[in-house]
Amino acid sequence: MKVIGVVGYPASGKGEFSQIAAGLGIPVVVMGDMIRRQVTAAGLALTDENIGAAARRLREDFGMDAVAMLTAEEVGKQHADAVVIDGIRGDAEVRYFRSVFPEFVLVAVEASFAVRLSRMQSRGRSDDTTTAESLKARDEREESFGLAAAMALAGVRLVNESTRDVYEAAVRRVFSEEL
Rank of each mutant, 00 (worst) to 15 (best):
M1V: 04
K2V: 11
G8L: 07
P10L: 11
S12Q: 07
K14W: 00
K14R: 12
G15D: 04
G15T: 02
S18P: 10
Q19K: 15
Q19M: 10
I20N: 02
G25D: 09
I26H: 06
P27V: 06
V28T: 13
V28L: 11
V29D: 09
V29A: 07
V30E: 08
V30I: 15
M31C: 14
G32D: 05
G32Y: 04
R37F: 06
Q38P: 04
T40S: 12
A41L: 15
L44V: 05
E49Q: 10
I51T: 05
I51G: 01
G52L: 13
A54S: 11
R56K: 10
R56L: 10
R56N: 09
R57F: 15
E60Y: 13
F62Q: 10
G63Y: 14
M64P: 04
M64T: 03
D65R: 11
V67P: 15
V67C: 11
M69V: 15
T71H: 15
K77S: 15
H79E: 13
V84M: 02
I85N: 01
I85R: 00
G87R: 01
G87A: 01
R89I: 04
D91C: 08
D91F: 09
D91W: 06
A92S: 12
R98N: 10
S99E: 04
V100F: 05
F101S: 04
P102H: 12
L106E: 09
A108Q: 14
A108T: 11
V109K: 08
V109M: 10
S112M: 09
A114E: 15
A114S: 14
L117W: 00
L117N: 00
L117I: 01
Q121E: 02
R123C: 03
G124H: 01
D128M: 02
L135R: 08
R138Y: 04
D139H: 13
D139M: 10
E140V: 09
E140C: 11
F145K: 10
F145D: 10
A150M: 03
L153K: 14
A154K: 01
A154Q: 03
A154R: 02
A154N: 06
R157M: 12
V159H: 11
N160Q: 06
N160G: 02
E161P: 00
T163Y: 02
T163C: 14
D165A: 12
A169R: 15
A170S: 06
F175S: 01
F175T: 03
S176K: 12
S176I: 09
L179S: 10
L179I: 14
